[in-house]
Design a protein around this nucleic acid. Structure first.
Lengths: 203, 203, 203, 203
DNA sequence: GATGAATGAGCCTTCATTCAT
DNA sequence: AATGAATGAAGGCTCATTCAT
């Protein structure tokens, strides 16, 4: 179990998710995206995953663990999306641009995920979780550090640079999504540049 | 009724809140800050406010209305804190500095409020609510606009400038609160300057 | 108190109901007719009667007493409607006709009253209530008794004759109201005659 | 599941109801008969049925559905009792006699059922419900129709004949049950004949 | 007499979790 | 491993009734 197998080993035509664990996580995710966080009840997750209620408790100790694993999964997915197309060979500014746009697009497309995060972030974190974040965002840390070393970025802890570079994005999404403020393509480009201005050293 | 009276008429030592409405709102707030959003049940709010369950429904149509009014209240309190000490006579940069620090301190001291906001923001907004936000943040809007007119700020919608100027703050608080990252006084000063860099025009 | 007074003693132009007791009863009645029996809460009755909640308890021991008095009132109103235009001078058949039509019209116009009755009838009856019924329907009893004495009606207790003569009416109303069965004028006339057939002696 | 099993396989002495659905319905019925309609709370039904509160919601969407199914069940039981021993081979008068007595006995033994009906009848009816009534009482309809065709019954819609033939029964039961009027065997026989007089053609 | 704010028991319903099969 | 019926605590809300004013 616990793997995604190809039904046909010769040619990868059909992918069926046999792993109940993942099916359950995806079901929960689907419910969140469709109807928000409070729509997630074990009963509904089971139905959505086409699994018996009790089965969920074979894979997760309790609801909290299920949610925590969902958090993990989403962090992974976000990290992947965030870092996609970002290579060490690229210039600092190019990498910054890609990261920024990746984050923007991810948040534009996963509005409800924010709520999950905010919800989960306040729960007591276990060591594993912190280690995961460390690991996932290591490349970003390195990116900031090398920018600092090159004298291009302000000499600040990478967490602070992260906040300065990407902190506006959630706010921007909140404006466009919740308050129906429309930003133009030019506005967005300007925001990207402003993010760059925020982290770089100025004469 | 509905007033805050001083128990001691000579000197205002003890303030007793007679107004049940506000007592209930504060009780709910307290619960949120102590134990998070899901700790808010009508029963618990009533207990905290030292009031019978039914009493809450004399002051609020239902739980949604209670939460919405809590949102209102918090927006007001935030707006007040945010704008405190900010005068038109001050220079743009001085005003920016005060706003930024005000927001920072507010969020540092009201960590759970974030969760309330994120929760409430997804609920359907009524016209009253939108008008309130417009009204409360009008001075901020004017601040950004005049900065743009003076050629000091980037020529962007005030909402975007808001996101660029203050969007990092929540992220910074999240880092210090949730992930226990410690920032120095110097880091904070640098962040304030970075925020200024983000919104101002560069040669 | 407890009376209906004419505002202007010279000329009876305006009748204002000063009697809170009756205002409350009418309010309860209105609620039943508008929204059914379960719409009757003390709070709503008070609002409808434009009276404070507590005031109701000055006039009625508790809700049960209010309902019982409502029952009384309705019995009186029904008896009045039932007997209207019925005179001893009229022939038996003429009186039967009037009673039958009166009952029919009353029930057609007061559909919800049935539910009130059925509801109230199961409550424990006090002596006063039984006496009231005796008193109100005494004329009907006499009508049946004199019919029996004249050899026109079947020699049965007047209660039984009552059931035979008027028992169909509720059923007829139920059909037309609830099951949307439409009866013609001729059907109704036939029903009236059938009622007569039921109680009279046949050769 | 969902069956009635005999505890003792040799001889059917003890019948234990395994079917929770029916156990719940019977529990509700029992409560109505014991203490009236307002005694029916989900909590009490659960207790009576020796079942957890939540269990009821496994079998019924909500209280309304439970009540509606109770209505169905009672209609069926009544129809069965009403039509029992009535055969097409019997004369019209014999069939009338049996129907009348069946209805009488049913109502004498199920006094509170009336209240349930009156309560439920005012709820909005769904198509299923109307169809059920049509189906259950089809034989009665045919009985009246054939009586009309044979020139024995008055030429009226079968619903009207139903009201004329059986409408007194509820009233009779109300008198004996609620007002403690005692009718003799002879009175009852006379009432049966009066019912026959009401629906038949007279020269 | 009159008010209406306050009470808390009780209502319907949902949900995380368990356990016999 | 998998099921899903069963549980009962807890949720939001209503209501008859009381009592200080």
């Amino acid at each position: 179990m616990r793997n995604i197998i190809a039904e046909n080993t010769e040619q990868m035509f059909i992918l069926v998710i046999t792993d109940k664990r993942i099916r359950i996580l995806i079901a929960a995710e689907t419910l969140i995206n469709q109807s928000g966080l409070e729509a997630v009840s074990i009963h509904r997750v089971a139905k959505q995953a086409k699994v018996a209620t009790g089965t969920i408790y074979l894979y997760f100790k309790d609801k909290d663990e299920l949610m925590a694993e969902l958090h993990d999964r989403n962090l992974r997915l976000f990290a992947e999306a965030f870092l996609s197309g970002v290579e060490n060979a690229q210039s600092l500014q190019e990498r910054h641009r890609r990261l920024w746009l990746n984050a923007l697009h991810y948040h534009q497309e996963n509005v409800n995920v924010q709520r999950l995060w905010v919800h989960l972030e306040t729960l007591p974190k276990n060591a594993h979780h912190k280690a995961l974040i460390q690991e996932l965002f290591e490349p970003v840390k390195l990116f900031f550090r090398s920018g600092v070393e090159q004298g291009c970025f302000k000499p600040l802890p990478s967490e602070m640079l992260y906040a300065l570079a990407f902190g506006q994005i959630l706010e921007i999404c909140r404006f466009s999504y919740l308050r129906e403020v429309k930003f133009t393509k030019q506005d967005m480009d300007a925001a990207l540049l402003a993010s760059w201005d925020a982290i770089t050293v100025h004469p």
